[in-house]
Design a protein around this nucleic acid. Structure first.
Lengths: 111, 111
DNA sequence: ATTATATATTGCAATATTACGATAAACCAA
DNA sequence: TTGGTTTATCGTAATATTGCAATATATAAT
């Protein structure tokens, strides 16, 4: 089918899965890393940086923006994108919450 | 096209994207959360837990296993799956490395 | 006004993912 | 051996994602 049965899962599980999709493509990882490093962050730089077409990068930026991970403001004719600190912190919290659920199996290792 | 241009990105970026795909579906999140909580961890329990067909769950388990996030051993007629501690720690490290790249923009907030 | 530059959107083709029924394989019990 | 249980795999259908050319839109410069 190709359609995810979201109704079977909790809102938290669906949300986390959506956010993880931001990281689930190397271009988006690269975009995020660039924005994390950059002082200024103008869209056009990304087209030169990555080897993808302008339309493709614009599409990835839109996805990240829709998820709330980045935000952009108009800077004359170009766009200025940057990380959204609040969402960034939320993602870190949600993921570390998951990571911290793991307790090392002291006696009862099942495999 | 639908094909990711992996050659444009670093190995680290491609690896991180692959690992993030493990989290990019609510069923896999649910499976991971179940294994994190469970003492014993038998495949069949998951079919009762989630509302998906057995074949579908088996497929998600295979993906997680291929990524190295879980490992399974044969337990009689059934399978015993659990989190792979090494990979789990690696994922946490890689993601926190990314999260920690963010420095709050003191003076030069661009948007 | 015209041209150049920068980004977004549209339309489309190709590949990937999700889901499940049917079936196979492997084990256990009687 | 036969039948029941459990998990994996195959085949297939439907939806999602990726990528880009073409085009639209908006600002800046001359």
């Amino acid at each position: 089918m190709g359609i995810t049965k979201s109704n079977l899962f909790t809102e938290e599980q669906n949300d986390l899965a959506s956010l993880a999709k931001a990281f689930a493509h190397p271009a988006r990882i690269a975009i995020i890393q660039y924005l994390l490093k950059a002082e200024a962050c103008i869209n056009g730089h990304l087209v030169n940086e990555l080897g993808l077409a302008q339309a493709t990068i614009s599409q990835h930026l839109k996805e990240l923006k829709t998820l709330g991970i980045i935000k952009g403001t108009i800077e004359g004719a170009s766009m200025s994108y940057c990380i959204n600190p609040e969402k960034w912190a939320e993602m870190q919290r949600l993921l570390n919450e998951l990571f911290d659920m793991y307790k090392n199996p002291s006696g009862n290792s099942c495999c």
